[in-house]
Design a protein around this nucleic acid. Structure first.
Lengths: 130, 130
DNA sequence: TCCTTGTTTCGATGTCTGTCGATACAGCGA
DNA sequence: TCGCTGTATCGACAGACATCGAAACAAGGA
């Protein structure tokens, strides 16, 4: 039992909270809640921001690292970060001059589990249904 | 290596096509492409539509099964189905009078794999590194 | 203290999206 | 053939969203 494993358990917990959507119909509330998270992911800039943060050294990045790679203005970046934060996908903290952002793995794991398509239960890609 | 990764491996090579976004920054093109799919999932009606189709008996459902549970008009349902279809998340086919829709598991698996958060690489919720 | 740098918030604007009713199209049965 | 049912498309409209420049706020250094 290492610390690493504990973290894994934390993730699997989140994963276990939501059965794959292909298994049973989503309720109205659950759908509305999840739609907000997917909406946060539905913008190319936010998607790249998220992966930039997650893949950054140490798993976190300050805003100053994030404005460079994009050709949108800095206020726009800040706006997108706010959207990601309010969707519960990232966390943030001010440390002196800079503000650092990091990804919340449990949120990603939750969405990932939701989209999980049980192998063999559904028809294959090519419209194999019947 | 977590159980989650094993499950993904078992699914499709679609899962292998895309490394988790937390591993390396997404390119512009990839982000734009994926954003379209997430955008298709960013509406509660479409989310429920998708899970309704996927969890329906036989893995497919005709439109007549889908208009009932919602309190939006039939043209609206048709519109949402078109969005899901154009995003590559579902397939459809006319069979006599009715049109049937089914989920394309590879697309879901692709997104699911993308959101997979490798255990131990990201700091825990409290924001750890440095 | 003032100034500089980094970040967020505000207000405005043009575009996109969800929704509707009306209508057109596709099969089926009489 | 005609009429009926199921589904898709069209045109319109209200609301939401992405983006920007300007300005406010926060922290550190001279």
């Amino acid at each position: 039992m290492s610390n690493l494993e504990l973290e894994v358990l934390g993730q699997e917990d989140a994963a276990a909270c939501c059965a794959p959507m292909v298994r049973e119909p989503l309720g109205e509330e659950a759908a509305a809640d999840l739609a907000k998270m997917f909406k946060a992911l539905s913008d190319p800039v936010r998607l790249r921001l998220l992966s930039l943060i997650a893949s950054h050294e140490g798993g976190e990045a300050c805003v100053c690292d994030l404005t460079g790679p994009f050709d949108v203005s800095q206020p726009t970046i800040s706006h997108h970060l706010k959207v990601l934060r309010e969707a519960g996908l990232v966390g943030s903290e001010r440390r002196g001059t800079w503000v650092y952002y990091w990804v919340l793995p449990a949120a990603l794991a939750k969405l990932s589990a939701l989209l999980q398509a049980p192998a063999g239960t559904a028809p294959a890609t090519g419209g194999g249904a019947r």
